[in-house]
Amino acid sequence: MKQNFVAGIMLLGVFAFTGLHAQTLSKPTGPVILTITGNIENTNTDGKTAEFDRNMLMNLEVVNQKTMTPWSEGVDVYRGPLLRSVMSAVGAKTDELSVTALNDYSAKVPKKDAEDYDVILAMDMNGKAMSVRDKGPLFLLYPFSSNPSLNNEVIHNRSVWQIKSINVE
Protein backbone atom coordinates (compact mmCIF):
# COMPACT_ATOMS: atom_id res chain seq x y z
CA MET A 1 0.00 0.00 0.00
CA LYS A 2 2.85 2.36 0.83
CA GLN A 3 4.35 1.71 -2.63
CA ASN A 4 1.04 2.59 -4.31
CA PHE A 5 0.81 5.80 -2.27
CA VAL A 6 4.39 6.81 -3.24
CA ALA A 7 3.74 5.92 -6.90
CA GLY A 8 0.55 8.00 -6.83
CA ILE A 9 2.35 11.00 -5.38
CA MET A 10 5.11 10.69 -7.99
CA LEU A 11 2.53 10.48 -10.80
CA LEU A 12 0.74 13.58 -9.51
CA GLY A 13 4.09 15.37 -9.42
CA VAL A 14 4.75 14.47 -13.05
CA PHE A 15 1.32 15.77 -14.09
CA ALA A 16 1.80 18.96 -12.08
CA PHE A 17 5.26 19.55 -13.55
CA THR A 18 4.00 18.92 -17.10
CA GLY A 19 1.08 21.26 -16.54
CA LEU A 20 3.39 24.07 -15.54
CA HIS A 21 5.22 23.98 -18.84
CA ALA A 22 2.82 23.06 -21.64
CA GLN A 23 -0.05 25.52 -21.54
CA THR A 24 -2.53 26.82 -24.01
CA LEU A 25 -2.68 30.60 -24.17
CA SER A 26 -6.04 32.31 -24.34
CA LYS A 27 -7.10 33.33 -27.82
CA PRO A 28 -6.99 36.96 -28.89
CA THR A 29 -10.34 38.74 -28.92
CA GLY A 30 -9.06 41.87 -30.66
CA PRO A 31 -6.86 42.41 -33.70
CA VAL A 32 -3.68 40.30 -33.63
CA ILE A 33 -0.63 42.56 -33.35
CA LEU A 34 2.05 39.95 -32.62
CA THR A 35 2.60 36.41 -33.87
CA ILE A 36 5.23 34.21 -32.23
CA THR A 37 6.39 30.99 -33.88
CA GLY A 38 9.25 28.56 -33.62
CA ASN A 39 10.55 26.68 -30.63
CA ILE A 40 7.76 27.53 -28.17
CA GLU A 41 5.73 25.37 -25.79
CA ASN A 42 2.59 27.47 -25.30
CA THR A 43 0.35 28.21 -28.27
CA ASN A 44 -3.19 29.34 -29.00
CA THR A 45 -3.85 28.67 -32.68
CA ASP A 46 -2.64 25.60 -34.54
CA GLY A 47 -0.39 24.09 -31.89
CA LYS A 48 2.62 25.87 -33.42
CA THR A 49 1.81 29.57 -33.11
CA ALA A 50 1.02 32.08 -30.40
CA GLU A 51 -0.98 35.14 -31.37
CA PHE A 52 -1.41 38.20 -29.16
CA ASP A 53 -3.75 41.15 -29.24
CA ARG A 54 -3.05 44.36 -27.35
CA ASN A 55 -4.98 43.34 -24.22
CA MET A 56 -3.15 40.01 -23.96
CA LEU A 57 0.21 41.77 -24.08
CA MET A 58 -0.89 44.40 -21.56
CA ASN A 59 -1.88 41.61 -19.16
CA LEU A 60 1.74 40.41 -18.98
CA GLU A 61 4.41 42.11 -16.84
CA VAL A 62 4.15 45.67 -18.14
CA VAL A 63 6.54 48.48 -17.22
CA ASN A 64 7.09 52.14 -17.98
CA GLN A 65 10.48 52.98 -19.39
CA LYS A 66 11.62 56.60 -19.41
CA THR A 67 14.39 56.87 -21.98
CA MET A 68 15.79 58.75 -24.89
CA THR A 69 16.44 56.98 -28.17
CA PRO A 70 18.61 57.72 -31.19
CA TRP A 71 15.40 58.07 -33.24
CA SER A 72 13.62 60.72 -31.22
CA GLU A 73 14.36 64.04 -29.53
CA GLY A 74 14.38 64.28 -25.76
CA VAL A 75 13.17 61.77 -23.22
CA ASP A 76 9.93 59.89 -23.70
CA VAL A 77 7.98 57.46 -21.51
CA TYR A 78 7.30 54.14 -23.19
CA ARG A 79 5.01 51.44 -21.82
CA GLY A 80 4.79 47.79 -22.74
CA PRO A 81 5.43 44.23 -21.63
CA LEU A 82 8.92 43.09 -20.76
CA LEU A 83 10.30 40.91 -23.54
CA ARG A 84 11.23 38.26 -20.96
CA SER A 85 7.58 38.14 -19.83
CA VAL A 86 6.41 37.58 -23.41
CA MET A 87 9.02 34.85 -23.91
CA SER A 88 7.98 33.22 -20.65
CA ALA A 89 4.31 33.30 -21.68
CA VAL A 90 5.06 31.32 -24.85
CA GLY A 91 7.59 29.03 -23.19
CA ALA A 92 10.45 30.03 -25.50
CA LYS A 93 12.99 27.21 -25.48
CA THR A 94 15.99 28.56 -27.37
CA ASP A 95 18.46 31.38 -27.07
CA GLU A 96 17.91 33.41 -30.24
CA LEU A 97 14.95 35.39 -31.52
CA SER A 98 14.35 36.65 -35.01
CA VAL A 99 12.27 39.83 -34.73
CA THR A 100 10.53 40.93 -37.94
CA ALA A 101 8.92 44.27 -38.82
CA LEU A 102 5.96 45.03 -41.06
CA ASN A 103 8.39 45.94 -43.88
CA ASP A 104 10.14 42.54 -43.39
CA TYR A 105 13.26 44.04 -41.80
CA SER A 106 14.51 41.37 -39.43
CA ALA A 107 17.08 41.32 -36.64
CA LYS A 108 18.56 38.52 -34.56
CA VAL A 109 18.15 39.24 -30.86
CA PRO A 110 19.72 37.04 -28.18
CA LYS A 111 17.10 35.97 -25.64
CA LYS A 112 19.78 36.79 -23.05
CA ASP A 113 19.22 40.50 -23.77
CA ALA A 114 15.72 40.12 -22.32
CA GLU A 115 17.17 38.51 -19.21
CA ASP A 116 20.03 40.99 -18.74
CA TYR A 117 18.13 44.22 -19.47
CA ASP A 118 14.58 45.50 -19.11
CA VAL A 119 13.91 45.24 -22.85
CA ILE A 120 10.28 45.97 -23.61
CA LEU A 121 7.88 45.66 -26.49
CA ALA A 122 6.82 49.30 -26.31
CA MET A 123 3.15 49.79 -27.16
CA ASP A 124 2.55 53.30 -25.79
CA MET A 125 4.63 56.44 -25.95
CA ASN A 126 3.86 59.31 -23.59
CA GLY A 127 0.48 57.79 -22.71
CA LYS A 128 -0.72 57.15 -26.26
CA ALA A 129 -0.84 53.91 -28.24
CA MET A 130 1.95 53.84 -30.80
CA SER A 131 0.68 53.83 -34.38
CA VAL A 132 2.57 52.37 -37.33
CA ARG A 133 3.55 55.94 -38.19
CA ASP A 134 5.15 56.28 -34.71
CA LYS A 135 7.11 52.99 -34.76
CA GLY A 136 4.14 50.95 -33.50
CA PRO A 137 2.27 48.87 -32.85
CA LEU A 138 5.33 47.30 -31.17
CA PHE A 139 8.86 48.66 -30.76
CA LEU A 140 11.64 46.51 -29.26
CA LEU A 141 13.13 49.06 -26.90
CA TYR A 142 16.26 48.82 -24.78
CA PRO A 143 16.75 51.01 -21.67
CA PHE A 144 19.22 53.41 -23.33
CA SER A 145 19.09 56.12 -20.66
CA SER A 146 19.60 53.85 -17.67
CA ASN A 147 22.30 51.83 -19.41
CA PRO A 148 24.30 54.09 -21.81
CA SER A 149 26.52 51.17 -22.89
CA LEU A 150 23.51 49.94 -24.91
CA ASN A 151 23.70 53.01 -27.11
CA ASN A 152 25.73 51.34 -29.87
CA GLU A 153 25.21 50.13 -33.43
CA VAL A 154 24.66 46.47 -32.51
CA ILE A 155 21.81 47.30 -30.12
CA HIS A 156 20.39 49.94 -32.47
CA ASN A 157 20.11 47.25 -35.17
CA ARG A 158 18.26 44.97 -32.72
CA SER A 159 15.79 47.72 -31.83
CA VAL A 160 13.16 46.75 -34.37
CA TRP A 161 10.04 48.88 -34.65
CA GLN A 162 6.71 48.15 -36.35
CA ILE A 163 7.12 44.55 -35.17
CA LYS A 164 4.72 41.98 -36.58
CA SER A 165 6.33 38.69 -35.54
CA ILE A 166 9.00 36.93 -33.53
CA ASN A 167 10.42 33.54 -34.43
CA VAL A 168 12.07 31.67 -31.56
CA GLU A 169 14.95 29.89 -33.29
Score class of each variant (00 low, 15 high):
Met1Ala: 14
Asn4Tyr: 14
Val6His: 08
Gly8Val: 10
Met10Lys: 09
Leu11Lys: 04
Leu12Gly: 15
Phe15Thr: 10
Phe15Lys: 04
Thr18Gly: 03
Gly19Phe: 00
His21Phe: 15
Ala22His: 12
Gln23Lys: 15
Thr24Ala: 14
Ser26Thr: 13
Thr29Lys: 15
Thr29Ser: 11
Val32Arg: 03
Ile33Ser: 03
Thr35Gln: 14
Thr35Ala: 13
Thr35Asp: 08
Asn42Gln: 05
Thr43Asn: 14
Asp46Trp: 05
Asp46Val: 06
Lys48Cys: 00
Thr49Cys: 06
Glu51His: 13
Phe52Trp: 08
Phe52His: 06
Arg54Tyr: 14
Arg54Gly: 03
Asn55Lys: 15
Asn55Met: 12
Asn59Lys: 12
Glu61Gly: 02
Glu61His: 14
Val63Lys: 13
Asn64Pro: 00
Asn64Cys: 01
Gln65Gly: 03
Met68Gly: 14
Ser72Gln: 13
Glu73His: 12
Gly74Ala: 05
Val75Asn: 03
Val77Ala: 05
Gly80Ala: 03
Gly80Met: 02
Pro81Asn: 06
Pro81His: 03
Leu82His: 09
Leu83Ser: 05
Val86Asp: 02
Ser88His: 13
Ala89Ser: 10
Ala89Phe: 01
Ala92Pro: 06
Lys93Asn: 11
Glu96Ser: 13
Leu97Gln: 08
Leu97Trp: 06
Ser98Thr: 13
Val99Cys: 01
Thr100Trp: 05
Ala101Tyr: 02
Ser106Pro: 06
Ala107Leu: 01
Lys111Leu: 15
Lys112Asn: 14
Lys112Ser: 15
Asp113Ala: 08
Glu115Val: 14
Glu115Gln: 15
Asp116His: 04
Tyr117Gly: 04
Tyr117Pro: 05
Asp118Ile: 08
Val119Lys: 01
Ile120Thr: 10
Ala122Arg: 02
Asn126Phe: 02
Asn126Gly: 11
Lys128Asp: 04
Ala129His: 04
Val132Asn: 09
Arg133Glu: 01
Pro137His: 09
Tyr142Gly: 11
Phe144Ala: 05
Phe144Ser: 00
Ser145Tyr: 02
Leu150Glu: 05
Glu153Arg: 10
His156Cys: 00
Gln162Pro: 07
Gln162Cys: 07
Ile163Pro: 11
Lys164Ile: 12
Lys164Cys: 10
Ser165Val: 09
Ile166Gln: 04
Asn167Lys: 15
Val168Gly: 10
Glu169Cys: 02
